[in-house]
């Protein structure tokens, strides 16, 4: 399936990998500076940590993490995607690698296995790796120190991107998922509780992260709207991209249309971005393009124009 991607009508120029790196304006911080000493690495490699977060559950964090990770990896980036939802592992199912989980995130932190043993290599894209959450019920299984060690090791291993799939809520797992991040993708549904909760998360991103505590340039925050229905926006039943953007004051990195394709994809264990027939896949791919620093216009946010007849008599 993936071999075919570069030839098909994916709309975006997938081959110009070098070029997209050159234009990407938000340069990641050189991770090596933070850990000087015997483990210091050459300053040429940079790893960017992106947290996918939301506050509210069920808005599409895992779907988004899986698709962004796939999209970045498909452009030749080395990507690790980590499930921070300890006790409620699910990223493995969405990525379709649930039967290959032997060791998990907590095993690596506890030293039960090496990082290499726990990283599950994706069968479709060979620069993509999954680190599954532990199913332990121990709430303190994750420690800030342990998480930092794993992230540092991934950086040392030459990963370009680390995607942290945050659990819902504002508890420890969510806190640790965002703590070391350079950027945040805040996943929001155009619906009151989701918008309010994500504003809470924005408050935490601005205060409870390493970057905020150090006082240097804070985390770069992006808004990603999911389950967007242009038809309901047109009839005034759903807040528009502009409304949500205005309330939260964030730049929009993507608008993902409401679609049955998302459920079909998770049923199959294939990240939805890989379904080339789907508008959802195109919308996620646009988001990846924007994450890489290129600006492309938003698509799938307007309802297809209806004729006068249809407008007068409904339908």
């Amino acid at each position: 399936m993936t071999e075919a991607t570069s030839e098909t009508d994916l709309v975006l120029d997938v081959t110009s990998d070098e070029a997209s790196v050159a234009v990407a304006p938000p340069r990641p911080v050189e991770r090596t500076r933070a850990s000087e000493g015997p483990t210091a690495r050459p300053a040429t490699r940079t790893t960017e940590i992106i947290v996918v977060t939301s506050g509210k559950g069920g808005v599409g964090k895992t779907t988004t993490s899986a698709s962004l990770a796939c999209g970045l990896a498909r452009r030749g980036k080395r990507v690790a995607v980590i499930d921070f939802d300890i006790g409620l592992r699910n990223l493995d199912l969405v990525m379709g690698c649930e039967r290959r989980v032997v060791y998990d995130f907590v095993n690596v932190i506890n030293g039960d296995c090496t990082l290499k043993q726990a990283l599950i290599k994706d069968k479709r894209i060979d620069t993509l790796f999954v680190l599954a959450a532990s199913q332990t019920r121990d709430k303190d299984a994750l420690s800030a120190e342990g998480v930092r060690r794993v992230l540092d090791d991934l950086a040392a291993d030459g990963f370009d991107y680390i995607i942290c799939d945050s659990p819902a809520g504002i508890e420890k797992g969510a806190h640790l998922a965002m703590y070391y991040a350079d950027r945040a993708v805040v996943v929001v549904n155009p619906e009151v509780s989701s918008v309010r909760d994500s504003d809470r998360i924005l408050g935490l991103l601005a205060s409870k992260t390493q970057r905020a505590e150090k006082g240097d340039r804070g985390i770069t925050e992006h808004l990603l709207l999911t389950r967007y229905s242009p038809r309901r926006v047109a009839t005034g039943e759903m807040m528009s991209v502009g409304d949500v953007k205005e309330i939260l004051g964030l730049d929009v990195v993507g608008v993902i249309p409401e679609s049955p394709d998302v459920l079909t994809a998770s049923n199959a264990g294939t990240p939805v971005i890989l379904n080339e027939q789907s508008d959802v896949a195109r919308a996620y791919d646009d988001a990846v393009t924007r994450l890489l620093g290129e600006s492309v216009p938003l698509r799938f946010i307007d309802e297809p124009k209806k004729g006068l007849f249809a407008r007068m008599f409904g339908g």
Binding site: R196, G236, M238, M239
Partner: peptide, 11 residues
Amino acid sequence: SSANVAKERLR
């Protein structure tokens, strides 16, 4: 519209 009500309440 209910969207406007939502927006205003959220604001």
